[in-house]
Amino acid sequence: MAVSTTTPHTVTVLPEGAQFRCRPDRNVLESISDGVQAGCRNGGCGVCRVQVVSGAFTAKKMSKAHVTPEDLERNIVLACRIFATDDLTIRPCPRPAHVLTPTTSNDNTSMTAADIND
């Protein structure tokens, strides 16, 4: 009997190893509440770039500016554009320019010009 298309898979996020249940009809980023930063959620900005260490998945179109053909060979993808077809283990793999800086607020102004230009 075929496996139900809504049977969730387990996604493990390294290095902490937090685990999330991930429906196969939802992209991996949607199912993760911690461990991978969310950006545009539509495959364009590259903030949620991850490496799939183990497990099978399908992928929708992703920005070639953030996922090159060489990246794809190493299973480096954008978490917002992949769908688990198996239990997955992933590791965040952001590009240096896309590590989000801390939030600033009017009672926490610790961010500096250097932070912005890093």
Binding site: V47, V99, T101, P102, T104, N106, T109, I116
Partner: peptide, 25 residues
Amino acid sequence: TWDEVGPAVFYHDRQLNPAFLGVYT
């Protein structure tokens, strides 16, 4: 001024969200 950058951008939240500076295409 820098100490008012939050309300300058988002007047009600009064703070930048991380995406404002880090998410672009």
